[in-house]
Amino acid sequence: MSATIKLKKLEEYLQSIDSFENPKILLEQYITPSHISSHFLYTIQNNYDDIREKLVADLGAGTGMLTIGSAILEASHVVGFEIDLDALNIAKFNADEMEVTNVDFVQCDVLNDLISDENKKWHKAFDTVILNPPFGTKKNSGIDIEFLKVATQLSNHSVYSLHKTSTRNYIQKKAKELNCKGEVIAELRYNLDSSYKFHKKASKDIEVDVWKFTLLS
């Protein structure tokens, strides 16, 4: 089923989302741009009907861009999980400002607190899990796959994620290991503004793939 609002309208809404005040390098905090976010979410709804009337999780929710965007696309309820309280308070402020109430934000360590062999309460709790994981280019390489692994355990149907195009073959291999069918459903350009002082150029483009992972039983 098509989204009930236009793509342009969604992008306009998401442009008003406040970003990180003081981005934390170790958490790889930069906001998912509203342009990327709106295309990402719109593709998920229009092509796969996986947001509207669904229970959706957003892993590493940051300041709430994808959580709030999913809520605007009429998810029944969205839960945004995030470790950083500063980001969460901005996310909550953003949701309140936009009068979006079909969301929850939960402060937790996505990689360690949510699910394990002994702790399966969230196992398959969600219809759809979306995430823009840390790309893991700093001192935490492989963290995107760790996020993806948690995502596949939380979902009972499908997972949508963003990964650098340069890692495509690697992601495909990992999808198999996670017992998922992985497919690239869109390619986007990610304009990473110089949020951090050590970014020398004003901004640089990164090519990213939008992935759909379908759980194989």
Binding site: L55, H77, V79, D104, V106, D113, E118, N119, K121, W122
Partner: peptide, 22 residues
Amino acid sequence: MKLITYNFLTSKCIRGVKVGYP
């Protein structure tokens, strides 16, 4: 926090906790 989220939350992560629910 809505109660649909409450339904899934546990304290199982605390060392030594057996069930941690509800």
